[in-house]
């Protein structure tokens, strides 16, 4: 069995593969990543994490606890390969660790074998991966164009970030938000509210500003694959589609694609599984 564990800045995700088929997946907040392994073990009660390397890198108190807990699980002798990815990839139990770039490339190709450009909108950064020439860009110096930008907007309105997409659909027009700096965009949001725009219309404007920021990072291409938890926001996806002009494809479960890619990497390491 191959497990992909993606512990990112905001959320932690797990995907389990058996004979190339996804048999389990789950998403929890990052700080609760341990639950994912417990969840996986309950889901597949006869497996164990026998192959986890107890390297220095994973000897955090949490990691040690998980390893000890799973070593006592009833086993059938079937080894599990855990490949970790995400910001915390080297501090959680893993057989191997890969970067999110490689994980995204492998995960997206599972669903879309001829994918050309992937945009992974994460909580703290955005990555653009051009599979045509194996290049990538990462924006991690500015919150605009990352999930943190939307968190700021949601925080201002005191609403859950998950509700932004639904509120966007209620807007009859979009307020223009020009600023590409997340912090200054809040000032501009306030100005637009003062100017008579509704919350929904300002949210629509925020999504468009977000989409413009991401679009600047993307090379010319006909089809873009969007992944990451942020693309569950339909308002953002629609804004991106209208601004970038490319065809946008969102694979099933866009939030767990990197965990899937990590699991697929494990399959590369141990093809017999």
């Amino acid at each position: 069995m191959n497990t992909g564990l993606d512990v990112g800045s905001t959320t932690a995700k797990i995907v389990r593969l058996e004979s190339g088929i996804i048999t389990a997946s789950k998403v929890v907040p990052s700080h609760r990543w341990k639950e994912l392994l417990e969840y996986g073990n309950k889901w597949d009660t006869v497996e164990t994490i026998a192959t986890v390397e107890t390297t220095e890198a994973i000897q955090t108190p949490e990691a040690t606890e998980i390893i000890q807990a799973t070593e006592t699980t009833e086993t059938t002798g079937t080894a599990e390969t855990i490949v970790s990815t995400g910001y915390f990839r080297k501090t959680v139990p893993h057989t191997a660790a890969i970067t999110e770039i490689t994980a995204a490339s492998l995960g997206v190709r599972y669903y879309i074998p001829d994918a050309q450009v992937i945009v992974d909108v994460g909580g703290q950064d955005t990555k653009v991966i051009d599979l045509r020439n194996n290049t990538f860009l990462i924006n991690d110096k500015c919150s605009a164009g990352t999930g943190a930008f939307l968190e700021l907007a949601a925080h201002y309105f005191d609403i859950p970030v998950e509700s932004l997409g639904k509120l966007h659909t209620r807007a009859s027009r979009c307020a223009r938000i020009n600023n590409t700096c997340g912090v200054f965009a809040i000032s501009e949001m306030i100005s637009q509210l003062v100017g008579g725009y509704t919350m929904e219309e300002v949210i629509c404007g925020i999504h468009q500003a977000f989409a413009r920021r991401i679009a600047q990072m993307i090379p010319p291409v006909e089809t873009v694959v969007l992944i990451g938890g942020t693309v569950l926001n339909q308002g953002l996806v629609e804004s991106f589609e209208s601004i970038h002009g490319s065809t946008v494809v969102v694979p099933p479960s866009p939030q767990t694609v990197n965990a899937l890619g990590a699991a697929l990497y494990g399959k590369k390491l141990r093809p017999e599984q």
Binding site: I101, L131, K141, K268
Partner: peptide, 17 residues
């Protein structure tokens, strides 16, 4: 760490992809 992530990812891309 940001630089290290990029170098690690580039190395993986050259080797794995």
């Amino acid at each position: 760490e940001q630089l290290k992530l990029r170098l690690e990812a580039f190395s993986e891309m050259l080797e794995v992809m």
